[in-house]
């Protein structure tokens, strides 16, 4: 199996170094770029399967780079950003980034996000999309609108289902409030983030084992939501998950 190619675009060499070391230990092939200009060349010549982009580059805005890359590549992009700028993160996500890491971030966090994005990309590219997905002990059929938890039918309102479906289609990508509002409610609602929060609270009550500490319907504070732990091999994973929870209970 060939090693996944990752391009890291970051002007601070120490950060580049530890990201490279950590990813290489995971068996990935890592290329480094210190500015947007090199990044353009490398992303065209190396064809990376994952990009990690710092938003504050010396020669260009990270968001501009993401938009350029998005024109011809669907490779997932993880954004690195400083903590203060929620709005910048939201803009980067809406420009086409898939996930973000806030500086200072740790190695486990970095690896988890990178793996999740690579898995997501390979899932998208591997064959026709199945209408059934699972996360935790929940099984969602996008075609029949059927939602099962512990093999029991769960009743969702149409909006709750549309919200869940939007997150499922995102497949682990961070969805901003705006994107979710546009997707579920329509263009007139883009500034009513509390709609999403109210319905997300309801969804968690229905689908999460312990709603205050969600494991799948995750909050990205001030940014949006993300659905974590989505798998395709449903039957098996539900069984595994039941076993797992039985063992820990």
């Amino acid at each position: 199996m060939n090693r996944p190619r990752v391009l890291i675009v970051e002007d601070e060499s120490d950060i580049r170094r530890f990201v490279r070391l950590s990813l290489e230990r995971e068996g990935m092939q890592v290329f480094e770029a210190g500015n947007a200009c090199d990044a353009r060349i490398d992303s065209a010549s190396r064809q990376p399967q994952l990009l990690i982009v710092d938003l504050g580059l010396p020669d260009a805005d990270g968001k501009t780079l993401i938009r350029e890359v998005r024109r011809w590549s669907s490779a997932p992009v993880i954004v690195l950003s400083a903590r203060e700028h929620e709005q910048e993160k939201v803009e980067a996500l809406e420009a086409g980034a898939d996930d973000y890491l806030v500086k200072p971030f740790g190695v486990p966090e970095l690896l988890a996000r990178a793996r999740a994005q690579l898995r997501r990309a390979s899932m998208v590219s591997s064959g026709p999309e199945s209408s059934v997905v699972c996360f935790g002990d929940v099984r969602v059929d996008l075609a029949t609108h059927e939602v099962l938890r512990h093999d029991e039918q769960i009743h969702l309102t149409p909006i709750e289902f549309r919200l869940l479906a939007a997150l499922v289609r995102g497949q682990g990508k961070v969805m901003t409030y705006r994107q979710l509002l546009l997707d579920v409610w329509g263009p007139g609602y883009a500034d009513r983030a509390h709609y999403v929060r109210v319905y997300m609270t309801n969804l968690r009550q229905k689908l999460e084992a312990h709603p205050p500490r969600p494991r799948h319907l995750l909050t990205e504070l001030q940014v949006g939501y993300r659905l974590a732990g989505v798998v395709r091999e449903c039957a098996q994973s539900v069984a595994q998950n039941t076993n797992f929870s039985a063992a820990t209970a």
């Binding site: 983030a193 509390h194 929060r197 109210v198 997300m200 609270t201 312990h210 709603p211 205050p212 500490r213 969600p214 909050t219 504070l221």
Partner: peptide, 28 residues
Amino acid sequence: LDWHDAGEVIGSALAAMDVVLGHRSVYI
């Protein structure tokens, strides 16, 4: 200011403090 579910914010804080809290049990 915006309308937030305080529980959601607490979940987010707990996730951020996972390492610091170590083996302490947190009951919500």
